[in-house]
Simulated scan of single mutants.
Amino acid sequence: MKTLKKILLLLALMSAALGSAQETITNESVIQMVELGFDDYMIIDKINTSNVKFDASISALGELKKAGVSSEILSLIMDKSKQNTKSKTGIYYTDASGQDKLIQPSVFSGSNSNAVAQKLVSGLINSKQKAQLPKTQSNNVIRQSQPEFMFIFDPSVTEVDNMQNNQGSDAGIFNWWFRMASNPNEFVLVKLTVKEKKNLREVITGKESWITSSSGIDPKYALNFSIEEVEGNKFKVTPAPLEPGEYCFIYQGAIPQGRDNQSVFDFSIQ
């Protein structure tokens, strides 16, 4: 019996240790500790010995300040936030479980044009160039109408460096969008048209008539979003409320030599 009790006690201690190791300290956790009367040194020690997920945007820091969080703790939160975002370039959203999820780029599977229809009416309408994505729904499912996205760029590589870098380095090959760009203004947010019968999603990427031609996303299709700088290379992006459907962020900035822009960062609102 004593042996059984020892085993149960050991299992309980291991479970407690595991739970402690997996605990994540957030802005709300810090506010809660302040409201409970924890001393600064206790809060600092807790932050330094735990996993953390802090929002260090100006508005979030303001809320912490209003809650009575000291300048020393605010400074630590800002430092921890910088450490967490280092080398994690890309676009992130928070999934239903509260975890940050990276949106991997999806590659266009094909293109379509109604140039034939244009010729039939002697150029009276524009020929629309459309890029297509496979499947009718993104793998990135977000169950809220106004999600927050985190854009993280690489501040260590300049635009000139990228333009000169043709091949052979991380800056030119992997996730180059976030090394070329410096802020979310170089991306546009658009709603994708779902084609159920063809099992695909598509977006208009250019127009052409017998007089003029244009490429890129028409500004009238671009959806509004707000941008808040969190750190020098980290931005919180919040779109206007979105109705259920398929969406994507498309890079519209300069393209480095040897690269193409045949990928988008897609997500589904449900």
Rank of each mutant, 00 (worst) to 15 (best):
Y92H: 05
L192F: 00
V107A: 07
K86D: 06
T94N: 03
S214Q: 10
V237K: 06
S59V: 14
N140E: 07
S226I: 14
I31N: 10
D40W: 02
I77L: 14
T49G: 09
S138Q: 05
A240Y: 08
M78I: 12
N27R: 14
D95K: 00
K5W: 10
N261Q: 01
S214T: 13
K88P: 01
Q137N: 03
T212Y: 15
S59F: 10
S59Y: 09
E228R: 04
A181T: 00
F267Q: 10
I58M: 08
V69M: 00
I43C: 09
M180Q: 15
S156L: 13
S70E: 14
S57A: 08
F151L: 02
S111Q: 06
P134T: 09
I152Y: 07
F265H: 00
V264H: 15
Y247F: 01
E202F: 00
Q118P: 10
N175G: 13
Q137L: 04
S209C: 04
K101H: 05
V69S: 04
S263L: 10
I217P: 14
V194I: 02
A60T: 13
S263Y: 14
N183H: 13
Q146I: 04
S106N: 15
G168H: 11
D45C: 12
Y92Q: 01
T26K: 09
S106F: 13
G245W: 04
P155N: 00
L61M: 15
S71E: 15
N224S: 15
G90N: 05
N166G: 13
I43H: 09
S50A: 07
E28C: 11
Q257E: 12
K220Y: 00
T94I: 02
G245F: 05
S57G: 05
K80E: 13
N84E: 04
V121Y: 01
S268L: 06
I227Q: 11
K135H: 04
T136M: 01
L4K: 08
L36V: 07
E202H: 06
S156G: 05
E208N: 02
S122E: 01
T193I: 11
Q257P: 05
W176M: 05
S113H: 13
V69R: 01
S70H: 08
S213I: 01
C248H: 06
K191P: 05
S169D: 07
W176Q: 02
E28Y: 10
I44K: 12
K2W: 02
G216H: 12
L124M: 15
L120H: 11
T158A: 04
V203A: 09
N140R: 08
M150N: 13
G98E: 03
I58Y: 06
G90W: 08
F265I: 00
S71L: 15
K82N: 01
K66E: 12
K220W: 01
L10E: 10
T193N: 10
K119A: 12
L242P: 05
G232C: 13
P256I: 02
I152K: 09
Q22Y: 11
M78Q: 13
N139S: 14
P239L: 11
K65A: 15
S57L: 04
A222H: 03
N114P: 15
F235L: 07
G19P: 03
